[in-house]
Design a protein around this nucleic acid. Structure first.
Lengths: 252, 252
DNA sequence: GGTGCTCTTCCGGATACCGGAAGTTCGGTC
DNA sequence: GACCGAACTTCCGGTATCCGGAAGAGCACC
């Protein structure tokens, strides 16, 4: 009944996973339904989670993610840790371009946005810090996919590619070519593939092991400036972050 | 043996709590020791946590907080949620003053910093996003303590007050007076109580229920400007955030 | 090839987890 | 103000599943 019962821990984590940006506060009943658990079971697990501070209880009895969990999770090297190191470079990039700047990492088959700085005059974008998005159509996603393990690439290429605009690349063959070009040139340009008015220019960030661990991008209004003019500054910022992370080949 | 056992979930959460800013990556053995669990037990629980993405495994076998947990925790209303709403006001404050700006909430008997913007010319401060600090000596802490439930205040006043500088208030009687003044004036000024060269000016942020849910502060070098000149701008920013949160008395 | 360390697998035993049933609280309705 | 339904909380016997010692695998260093 409900969902296949995992171990207690997995069940508890499913409860945490029941929260979403649209519904950051849930009642016990909603929580139980979303996690596919009997109400009584959910009640017991939720009590445990709340006693530690992973969940908090609102005045009107609803539950929400607790500060303690946020605090602990802020130690994630690929989350806040990465953000802290990259922030100065991102801010410089934001100052120089006056556009939206983004920092993202790959998790499974998605892009996860770690930081986003909204430019003064910049166009609104769909992304949210902590949010997910498919890799293929985004600038940062192209960079991350191009440098992902072969099996990840194959899995993405095997599935149907979601279409967002009439310029979204949906042909696996074209995407494969594009990825090869991204590897060759060291930058990715997504031209109106997500929304019809946005172009993004992205570059890879390297970690201490010399592998690509993140990507940054600048998102501009289509037609404002030739995207290629942004390549040097994006690349420079990415190199700066890589150096701060301790990339071996950049050290000196 | 080790620590009092507790339920499985609490044990698993203790494993997450074993990470610290100084040690964001731990081996299985370190994790087990810190959480006070037998190695075998830790091994099993950690596997469950990792399978969901709450923990990730490094190349060399160490564990760290996983991106999935960070992503989920970013839904905490008192964490990233609050930060997102407050950020524009904090940035304005930072632009105007060119000093360090901080946003914090109370958790149990501590201040937890939710955001910190470093000013261009500002002095370095001890705080870190996601970090904890005792309430009494800090500006934000004074605000939060002054508006905390009576039992929280009593608990803080009953314990010995930690001394940081020779201006740190360690007398419960003086602190009590100061808290009353904070409630009366609506702002708190911590004058060289944390470090000998820093003064902070703080104001309360109100939530939808009309209670104090957070505090913001500006930290300046002692002697640079009279702290009182900063009061209006800090208060204005705090009111702006309160309004965005939907404080009833400010609505219009 | 011995020694010490960390990590992983195995498995019998009992503990603490499970979840239906019943009780409580709360708010809305006639 | 009594009734009703929904959401939450407590209770408790049966047993699934969690526990953790023991043993073994992998690795680095002497």
């Amino acid at each position: 009944m409900g969902a296949q019962t995992g171990s207690v821990i997995v069940r508890a984590l499913r409860l945490l996973g029941a929260f979403s940006p649209e519904q950051p506060e849930l009642t016990l009943t909603e929580l139980a339904r979303r996690a596919g658990l009997p109400l009584t079971t959910a009640h017991r697990l939720v009590s445990d989670l709340a006693s530690w501070g992973a969940l908090e209880r609102d005045g009107d009895g609803r539950y929400r993610i607790g500060l303690r969990l946020w605090e602990t999770a802020s130690l994630a090297p690929r989350g806040l840790g990465l953000r802290e190191l990259a922030l100065p470079f991102l801010e410089d990039l934001s100052q120089v371009t006056q556009e939206n700047v983004q920092l993202a990492v790959r998790d499974a088959l998605d892009v996860v946005y770690v930081e986003r700085i909204a430019g003064r005059t910049a166009i609104p974008v769909l992304t949210r810090v902590g949010g997910r998005f498919p890799m293929p159509p985004t600038g940062v996603g192209l960079v991350l996919l191009a440098h992902a393990p072969a099996e990840v690439q194959e899995e993405v290429l095997a599935a149907p590619l979601a279409r967002f605009t009439d310029r979204t690349i949906v042909s696996p063959r074209l995407l494969r070519q594009l990825l090869a070009e991204v590897r060759r040139t060291g930058v990715a340009i997504s031209d109106r593939q997500v929304t019809i008015d946005a172009v993004s220019v992205a570059a890879p960030v390297y970690g201490p092991a010399g592998t690509v661990v993140a990507a940054i991008s600048v998102v501009v209004h289509a037609g404002d400036v030739p995207p290629t003019t942004l390549v040097p500054v994006v690349r420079a910022a990415a190199r700066g972050i890589s150096r701060t992370l301790g990339t071996p080949t950049l050290r000196r």
